[in-house]
């Protein structure tokens, strides 16, 4: 699969570019480079949320176990990405604002997303019956999706935010948006999204194999290695 090699290329090029292209910032210096990892992780977290919700709708429509499995896999990747975004954001906040956590609306939003993901997995863990688990978790992720706009759009509007709005536009202590910087940023967004897609494919395949073996009730035939390489 050619695009999997593209991920490697993009990631490598992007990481080199991040540390060489943009000049260090006037206020926070080199720490600002975390931006190129923080934003794509957050994006991946939100995209996975949307994917999980879409698979939830598909499940409720066609009741195929595959849709439920994909929803869960998307949510797993989303949870990981959101944790990365939260931690990198907290470090970013420490450097720029002086505290890891200061209940900026953006931080509240991402915490809300994190909690919804956590609750989603708590629910999946608690329900033994496969059909009920699939149905209830699909409903839950959809409720989360319906409520998320309040977290994303409404709360930040009620409260002034310290969070950079147009993150690349040069404000005080921001990057100057030059073409190379913009390209680096675009590359990081694409690389993270593709990486998420690849992870999704792999995890989905692994889960499918596990399910098939569970149905057969034959764990001894679990292959010692699942081919992870494209």
């Amino acid at each position: 699969m050619w695009w999997k090699y593209l991920i490697g290329l993009l990631m490598t090029g992007m990481i080199i570019a991040v540390f060489t292209l943009p000049p260090p910032q006037t206020v926070i210096g080199d720490a600002s480079r975390i931006f190129f990892f923080h934003v794509p992780a957050a994006l991946l977290g939100f995209l996975s949320f949307a994917a999980a919700a879409i698979f939830g709708v598909i499940y409720l429509k066609n009741r195929q176990p595959s849709a439920d499995r994909r929803a869960a896999v998307a949510a797993e990747i989303g949870l990981t990405a959101t944790v990365i975004a939260t931690i990198s954001g907290a470090i970013f906040a420490k450097v720029t604002w002086g505290a890891y956590w200061n209940w900026d609306p953006r931080q509240t939003t991402i915490l809300g997303v994190l909690l919804i993901y956590a609750a989603y997995f708590a629910l999946r863990q608690a329900v033994a019956d496969r059909q009920a688990r699939a149905r209830l978790s699909a409903v839950y992720i959809l409720v989360g999706g319906a409520i998320a706009p309040f977290l994303f759009f409404v709360l930040p509007r009620l409260y002034s935010s310290l969070h950079p709005k147009d993150s690349l536009v040069s404000g005080q202590g921001q990057f100057v948006l030059t073409l190379p910087v913009a390209l680096t940023f675009a590359a990081s967004l694409i690389a993270f999204t593709l990486l998420g897609l690849w992870l999704f494919q792999l995890a989905d395949r692994a889960e499918r194999i596990k399910e098939e073996l569970e149905i057969k009730g034959d764990y001894t035939r679990l292959p010692r290695t699942i081919p992870y390489w494209p």
């Binding site: 809300g112 956590a118 329900v127 209830l136 839950y140 409720v143």
Partner: peptide, 29 residues
């Protein structure tokens, strides 16, 4: 709705709070 989810899941107690709180979060502020 969350209560119906909990009841159908056949679990009670803490999970209700766990599921309901993130959904109620936008109300609190």
């Amino acid at each position: 709705l969350i209560a119906a989810v909990i009841a159908t899941a056949g679990v009670r107690g803490a999970l209700f709070s766990v599921l309901a709180l993130p959904i109620l979060l936008p109300l609190l502020v």
